[in-house]
Amino acid sequence: MPLLSTEAIVLSSLRLGEEDKLITFFSLTRGKIVGVAKGARRFKNRFGASLEPFTHCHLVLFEKPNNKLARISQADILYSFRKLRESWEPIERGTEMVRLLLRITPEEQPHPGLYYLLKEGLTFLETGVNRYLSVILFTAYLIAESGYQPRWDHCVGCNRSVTETAAAPSRFFSCKDGGLICPRCTTSEAQCISISLGALTFLQTLSKIDFRSAHQYSPSLLLLREIETLLKDYMAYIIGCHHLLNASS
């Protein structure tokens, strides 16, 4: 398909050569794609601010056979998310979301679920009610949408129900196995993360509701920190596996 017309969100923008830019998008119809915007750094260029990170735009790309990089021929802003680029916290939080998505998604694999999740995530960041919560929720739903949803109800080793009333040291999360693990199945505690009842309940709730509804909850800062650490560790494990798979292929 030489000409591609799709809506997309700009993930990153890098300088290329003297006056060009290398843009990574997450598109609705083709997933993560990389394109070259010729002359995008010139003073009077036809792209304007449409290729700035976080911008939701309509994109026209021209693809050449035997060339992995597409040429961006047109980009029109649908929504700029400009407020995200105007102060420190939204830049940091937005960057965090984009980085996670960049790392976990393969190129050219359409995933409308992830596309709408990113769009909603950026919208919540822009409204700025609780940006820290938005990033943590985004991470949790990104993991689930990417096919790595952990099991929060049963032990991944023996499939027994992990009772919520169990004492704290007996609730563990295994990144390697992707879910809760009971003390009997735990080979070495060092490889597992202890998880509090509050965090477990919240994560179980998240798996039953959508991203938008999850913003109605306001967990304590302590609980959010615990969930953030757990999700980051799991994400690091997933990304590590991705790197290994890419290296071996």
Binding site: K44, G48, A49, S50, E52, I77, S80, R82
Partner: peptide, 16 residues
């Protein structure tokens, strides 16, 4: 807006 250009061709972010 850059000097010497037409406003109608400016994108929304530049205009804002």
């Amino acid at each position: 807006i850059p000097a010497g250009s037409d406003i109608e061709y400016a994108d929304e972010v530049t205009l804002i």
